[in-house]
Simulated assay, not measured.
Amino acid sequence: MAAGRTTPVTKPRAAARKPEAEPGPVTDRLDRPGPADAHTSEFWKELRRAVIWLSVVAAGALVVILIEPILFILASVVIAVMLDGGTRLLGRFLPIPRGYRLGIIVAFVVAFVGWTFYLTGTQVIQQAAQLPPLIESQVARISAFAQAHGINLGIAELRQAGEQLLGSVGRVTAILSSAAGVVSSLVMMLVLAVFLATEAQLYSRGLAWLVPIARRDEAHDLIDKVGWTLRRLMAGRLVGMMATGFLTGMLLMITGVPMAMLLGVLSFLLAFLPNIGAIMSGVLITLVGFSVDVQHGFFAIGVYFTVQTVESYFITPTVARRAVDMPPALVLGAQIMFGALFGILGLALADPILAMSKVILEERAKRRVAEQA
């Protein structure tokens, strides 16, 4: 190498540049597997969430679509509870197998209904056909009387109120008339109730099977308490219904008010609806009484207040000691809400549904307190 010459320094070749990675969370998101990767837990977690929300929406839509058969099934459960209560009561006096006792109760119910319609069916059907035009004529008379005394109620408003009243009891009077659809529905409910009452323990175990194993003992206890509550509620209601219907029909017949038999049957059925049923039967009794003359109208009012006094001061306090105690305002609010949402059947089932909900919420609260203690 010649003196004075410098050897050039060869610089190493620069390595291929890597793209600069974005710092922080973006790098984490790129490195982590996404929901599209089916083998990851994130995918199945998101899928479960989606399925749960879709199931909730589908269940809500299904309830809206099938609300009428659901209410019929609930009505069958209520009837089954009543049959079961009668079977248990009969067992205190007649120590025979449960199936025979249930058969006696069902036969008695069928015989009573058949006897009632056989002896009074024609008269009740004729009276039921005469009731709607009679009430409409009474509404017109009330409107004319109010206008004559300077009260501008308007015939349209009163007629609308009368139509709403008739609409409220329309299905009740249809049961007493020749409504084949309603009768067939009642028969189906009774048959389903008989099946439920025959194998009550089987269906109770089936409901408890839907609960996790660790909670099944609590589920059995809850089902027993709900059944006990419904039996007491329906027993008290049935006693009040029979007393109200019998007293109303007998007193109206004694005072000479027409359609006494029909009004007694309607009072019996409407007594199933506390608060609202008494008001509806009172309005019907008063309108029918005043359709004859003023004297029979006052007789009808007297009969209504007499029956309500006997029921309020003698029957209800006696039955309430053994039945379920629920606040009247809560019961009335539930009836208004269920009646507006589901019609006459929802109105009839508001009380049992409220009683079941009350028991379930109370037992859930007790369990939480016990777990925290």
Score class of each variant (00 low, 15 high):
V169L: 02
G170Y: 04
L186Y: 04
I155Y: 11
L190N: 03
V182A: 04
T229P: 11
Q164D: 15
A161R: 14
A208I: 10
W209N: 04
A193I: 09
V211I: 09
M259D: 08
R205Q: 14
G170W: 06
V191C: 02
Q201H: 12
A200Y: 12
S184F: 05
D224M: 09
H220E: 15
V226P: 14
N152M: 09
G162W: 09
Q160W: 12
I175N: 02
G256H: 06
L210Q: 00
A174G: 07
T229Y: 13
P212C: 05
S185Y: 00
I223F: 15
T248Y: 02
A180M: 01
T173E: 00
F246M: 01
L238H: 03
G154I: 08
M188G: 01
A214F: 10
L262T: 00
A219S: 15
P258M: 02
G181C: 05
A214R: 12
A161L: 15
V187M: 02
L153D: 13
D221C: 09
M259V: 11
F195R: 03
R171P: 00
A214L: 11
A260S: 13
R159L: 11
G162L: 07
D224R: 12
S168W: 06
L207D: 03
A243Y: 07
G245Y: 06
I223T: 14
D217Y: 10
L252D: 01
S185Q: 07
A174Q: 01
Y203T: 06
L230W: 12
F246I: 07
E163C: 00
V183G: 04
V172T: 00
A260C: 06
A161P: 14
E199Q: 09
R231Q: 14
W209E: 03
L222V: 15
N152I: 07
E163A: 13
F195A: 06
A161N: 14
G154M: 08
W228Y: 12
G249Q: 06
V191R: 05
A193N: 05
V187A: 09
M242A: 08
I254N: 04
G236E: 05
S178G: 02
Q160D: 15
G256W: 06
M242K: 00
A161Y: 14
H220S: 13
T248N: 03
G227C: 11
G150I: 08
G150C: 11
Q201P: 08
I213F: 11
Y203H: 07
I155P: 12
R215N: 12
V182G: 03
G206M: 10
T244E: 01
G162S: 11
A161S: 15
T198D: 01
G154C: 12
Q164Y: 14
L192D: 05
L238R: 05
V182N: 03
I155H: 15
M241W: 04
M259Q: 11
M234P: 07
L196V: 08
M250N: 02
V182D: 02
G264K: 02
I223A: 15
A179H: 00
L158P: 12
T255P: 08
T173V: 06
A180N: 03
R205D: 15
R159G: 15
L166E: 06
A243M: 04
A180Y: 05
A174P: 04
V191Y: 03
D221Y: 10
I223P: 13
M253S: 08
